[in-house]
Amino acid sequence: MHEGALTAGQQEAHSGSVVVFYFPDDACVERANLLARKTRCVVVDNTPDQYVVAGLDSAVCYLPNGKNVGVATALNQGVERLREEAYATALLFDQDSSPSDTLIRELPQLLGELQRRGERVAIVAPAYDDPRLGGVADFVRFRPFVLKRIPATGEEPIDVDFVITSGSCIALDCWPSVGPMDDALFIDFVDLEWCIRAKHKGYRVLGVPWITMEHELGGEPVRLLGRPYPMHSPLRHYYLFRNAIELFRRAYVPLAWKLTELCKLPVRLVIYLCIPTDRMKHFGMALKGIQDGVLRRLGPYSDAGSR
């Protein structure tokens, strides 16, 4: 798998990275600085202007938006900057991601090897280790009414139906064909929709089981039937429901995913109504998401009266 790999210096010249900031603390800034010593690092900042981000190294390409334009738009801005500078791949990270040197080096290297063999691969991603949820998560494929879980084991890439953004590595030569992330979705299902679109265009989406990255999926988990269940903020639940409704309309989104998500939505509503401390806010924002999804009110959330 690793025959003919680029040297570290060659790989550094071909691979860039994008980090999205939103009210970053000092640790986030230091992680970006560390990343900039290993790869071309573009930081896209969605923090409002009133919040001053200090301490970034001069090697970091800093793109402040002055407001929250959404994860999709911020990632697109970072990717476009790397494309302008003729980079071949883009590693994408949340501000709290701490990728290993192995991930930074080997994901772009693997992508390059596969492309040299003539493989049409859009994105490769590590396995995710969330200790709060029981360790390394499975990769997934869509099946009607339930996701098929593929253990993150072995020494070969695994064809999957989607991967999460943070830690993933995109082949930038596929960007014009697949298109950018969907700005209108703003945050939730942005990665899933892009992967679905890439597969619809004939590209592969691959999980890389021998590379892992610690990553917290969602907020602090709650216990449900004795098992940890990831919980988000009420606003994130708004986007989750709204964007699911939007994706149900799209013909290129697989029916298997739609059927699975249709089964999940009422279960989530029951969970939000029964488990969180501020359950009525979670439930209300989910209902608002359903309403805005039906009415196709996309982009950033705002009260109905301001639309």
Rank of each mutant, 00 (worst) to 15 (best):
R236K: 10
I123L: 09
C28E: 09
A86R: 12
E113A: 14
R120V: 02
P209A: 11
Y239G: 11
R143Q: 13
I123K: 04
A36I: 04
V270G: 03
E106W: 08
G112C: 11
E106T: 00
A122Y: 07
Y252C: 07
R204L: 05
S100Q: 03
L114H: 06
F23A: 02
I211T: 05
L75N: 13
L103Q: 09
Q115P: 00
G134Y: 01
R105K: 08
D101E: 15
R250I: 08
D278H: 12
R307L: 14
T212Q: 15
D303F: 13
R105C: 05
D138N: 15
D26M: 01
C274Q: 11
F189W: 14
P266T: 05
I211P: 15
D183Y: 00
R242S: 05
V178Q: 03
C195N: 02
L103N: 04
P228N: 04
Q291D: 12
G167C: 02
E80H: 07
A125G: 09
E119N: 02
K38I: 01
D292F: 10
L273I: 00
D96E: 12
P228K: 03
V53W: 06
D26I: 03
P151I: 06
L82T: 05
P99Q: 00
G305Q: 04
P176V: 15
G16M: 06
H200I: 00
A90Y: 13
A88R: 11
Q77Y: 04
A125W: 03
M1Y: 11
S302H: 15
T212I: 09
R132I: 00
L107T: 04
P126N: 04
D303N: 07
E216A: 14
G4A: 04
I170M: 13
D25Y: 01
R132T: 00
L235R: 10
D188W: 03
L295R: 14
A32W: 03
V208S: 04
I104K: 00
P157C: 12
D49L: 09
V19W: 09
M285Q: 13
R81S: 10
A74D: 01
R297C: 09
P209V: 09
V52N: 06
G289L: 05
G154D: 14
D129Q: 04
Q11P: 00
I211R: 10
D94K: 03
A32L: 12
P228V: 04
F248D: 13
S58H: 11
L192D: 01
